[in-house]
């Protein structure tokens, strides 16, 4: 089943100028508006130089979730930041590739690699 708003985002933390968080659950049209709302609220009071989304807890997402990620990317870029996606599961990675987003987001196997890349 898809997740509800209350448990989709976990373990929000900052490290230097980076904001890191985990997303959990399947995301589709039913709950992507909730995910969007939560993510935009998190960014309302912050302008991280990097937003690192750990998607290891997301076995599935649809195009409505992709739209949320693209909107989020626009917000982060507007503030001069970058957005990294980590721990991508196969179905999620496949959809991102169909959407040709592998060249726009930065994919990393783990958060540590994403953070390490920021200084380069």
């Amino acid at each position: 089943m898809t997740s509800n708003e209350h448990d989709m985002i976990r373990n929000v933390r900052t490290q230097g100028q980076a904001m890191l968080l985990e997303v959990h659950g399947e995301v589709d049209l039913h709950n992507s508006p909730d995910l969007r709302g939560q993510l935009l609220r998190l960014l309302a009071d912050a302008s991280p130089k990097a937003l690192v989304l750990n998607l290891g807890g997301v076995p599935y997402m649809d195009s409505s979730a992709i739209a949320v990620l693209v909107e989020l990317l626009g917000r982060v870029r507007k503030g001069g930041g970058v957005m990294c996606l980590t721990h991508l599961q196969p179905r999620v990675k496949a959809l991102l590739e169909i959407a040709r987003l592998e060249t726009i987001f930065r994919f990393f196997p783990a958060d540590a690699e994403a953070l390490a890349s920021l200084g380069k």
């Binding site: 649809d62 195009s63 739209a67 626009g74 169909i98 959407a99």
Partner: peptide, 18 residues
């Protein structure tokens, strides 16, 4: 040849490709 930043249309792309 969908623009990745263009909203909408991805569902149709998926159906057509998959």
């Amino acid at each position: 040849d969908k623009n990745p930043f263009e909203a909408g249309g991805l569902g149709l792309v998926c159906m057509g490709r998959l």
